[in-house]
């Protein structure tokens, strides 16, 4: 018998196991890489810092698409995806901010600087945190999903404006290694890309688990309502 939900379980577990294997391998490889000439061991934080930022940005885009699709179809599975991916993206952005802060503490001698990228990341974090606050404040499920979708669209439109406008302050953040003309040896790049894959897979697994929770929660709520009605 082909059981669809069990098959999905296997796939999720397989993804989770893949994440653990790839991460273990990456951490091992990163630890063995030679230290950077200028920055020493702390430079290696980039292997987590940048993929986390990329994952968080991807999550914001997915949340936007899911929110638009919810408003068009009124299918609550899109609402579940939007909230799940926003929460996971927020966690990754927090990881990005924390790793950046640790790096700044060592290299700049201060935990925080009001530099363009840092400020933009912080504003985006607060933007999406307020999305989650909004969800908590609305009781009725349809209204919650609708309002949250509208606010997700508002927030996503704001992201490029925030980044663009904050750029007009003097920037202290190092130019991106990959597009800023910096050199990154080939074998480092390979490790970097593997870790990027690990982060994206981790985000997918976490999002899937959260989507299932949301769907289960919705079913529970509707059962409870039915019970009340009887």
């Amino acid at each position: 018998m082909f059981d669809k939900s069990r098959w999905r379980d296997y796939l999720l577990h397989l993804f989770g196991a893949a994440v653990i294997v790839i991460l273990a391998r990456d951490i091992n490889l990163i630890a063995r890489l030679p230290q950077d000439v200028n920055q020493g061991a702390i430079f290696k934080i980039i292997f987590f810092h940048v993929p986390m930022a990329v994952t968080a940005m991807t999550a914001a885009a997915v949340a936007f698409v899911a929110s638009v699709l919810f408003l068009i179809t009124r299918d609550f599975r899109y609402d579940a995806l939007a909230v799940a991916v926003t929460e996971v993206g927020l966690a990754f952005l927090a990881g990005n901010l924390i790793t950046g802060s640790i790096w700044g503490h060592i290299i700049w001698g201060q935990w925080w600087a009001w530099d363009a990228r840092l400020t933009s990341a912080l504003v985006c974090w607060i933007l999406y945190a307020s999305y989650l606050m909004l969800r908590r404040a609305v009781e009725e499920p349809t209204q919650r999903a609708t309002f949250a979708a509208v606010w997700s669209i508002f927030s996503f439109i704001d992201v490029p404006i925030v980044i663009f406008s904050i750029k007009w302050w003097r920037t202290q953040h190092p130019q991106p290694v990959f597009w800023g003309g910096g050199s990154f040896p080939h074998d480092w790049l390979v490790v970097f890309l593997w870790n990027m894959l690990a982060m994206v897979l981790l985000a997918i697994v976490m999002t899937t688990v959260r989507v299932r929770q949301e769907n289960a929660q919705r079913e529970l709520d509707s059962l409870r309502r039915t019970a009340h009605a009887m």
């Binding site: 933007l127 307020s130 606050m133 606010w151 704001d158 925030v162 663009f164």
Partner: peptide, 10 residues
């Protein structure tokens, strides 16, 4: 204010 200010930042 919690919703308005973050979006209003730029």
């Amino acid at each position: 204010p919690l919703l308005t200010y973050p979006v209003l930042v730029p």
